[in-house]
């Protein structure tokens, strides 16, 4: 309930300041436009659109999700948060905010892809939805803990993608594989190993984040 109250505070703040929403919307529009212009009238393969989808999602996450903690640090309200809630409440609230933001962002990107790219055809929707669900949760967990780490650093802008790349790489590779399988029309049973890797990644990242957050947050 406390974490939900923090989540509500963050949304109300976001709707007034539009820190993350503006950055994300502009990034998504610009990136997809650049891809469309560079492709021109060329035909691209299904697999390539699947790959491009996750590339856009990865870089959009880079541009918007760090705001959860960076905006608190920039406004000097980190101390205020420390004075009103325990570290676990703060992490849960921020994670909830990033999960909702990631889902909104990625649903918008996927809809744009399916409208603008003829070759973006998913044959096994259920498999894609499973990948999409656990993939987004994984992106949100990783981005939240990395945002907490970099919010204390002086060169936040450059540090975020540098730290995110090795942490998100196994997740993105698994998601690329699952997107390929869903485009091929593979069954969920055949993709079991990749789904297990995806869920394991989420569980490991979530556990590690809760254990680490106390130390990151205090100093």
């Amino acid at each position: 309930m406390k974490a939900y109250s923090l989540y509500k505070k963050d949304w109300q703040s976001e709707l007034r300041t539009r820190y993350a929403i503006n950055a994300l919307s502009m990034f998504i529009l610009v990136t997809i436009s650049v891809i469309l212009f560079s492709i021109g009238s060329e035909k691209i393969t299904e697999y390539l659109t699947g790959g491009l989808l996750w590339v856009v999602i990865f870089f959009s996450a880079m541009s918007g999700l760090s705001r959860a903690f960076v905006s608190e640090e920039e406004r000097g309200t980190t101390l205020t948060l420390q004075l009103i809630a325990s570290p676990s409440t703060i992490f849960s609230g921020k994670l909830l905010f990033n999960i909702v933001l990631v889902f909104l962002m990625n649903i918008a990107i996927t809809i744009l892809f399916s409208i603008l790219f003829d070759s973006f055809i998913i044959k096994n929707i259920e498999l894609f939805l499973i990948a999409f669900l656990f993939g987004n949760i994984g992106i949100a967990i990783s981005s939240t803990i990395i945002a907490a780490i970099i919010s204390k650093a002086s060169s936040k802008g450059t540090l975020y993608p540098v730290l995110s790349f090795p942490i998100l790489l196994p997740l993105i590779l698994t998601l690329l594989e699952l997107t390929k399988f869903s485009m091929d029309g593979n069954s969920i049973e055949k993709s079991f190993v990749e789904i297990a890797v995806l869920i394991s990644y989420d569980v490991i990242m979530l556990t590690a984040s809760y254990l680490l957050f106390d130390f990151i947050w205090k100093d």
């Binding site: 703040s13 300041t17 406004r75 000097g76 101390l79 205020t80 004075l83 325990s86």
Partner: peptide
Amino acid sequence: HNHIGFVSPYLFLYDE
């Protein structure tokens, strides 16, 4: 945090 009331020059509330 529920037992302490803190006032300081480096404490900021939400301007918005």
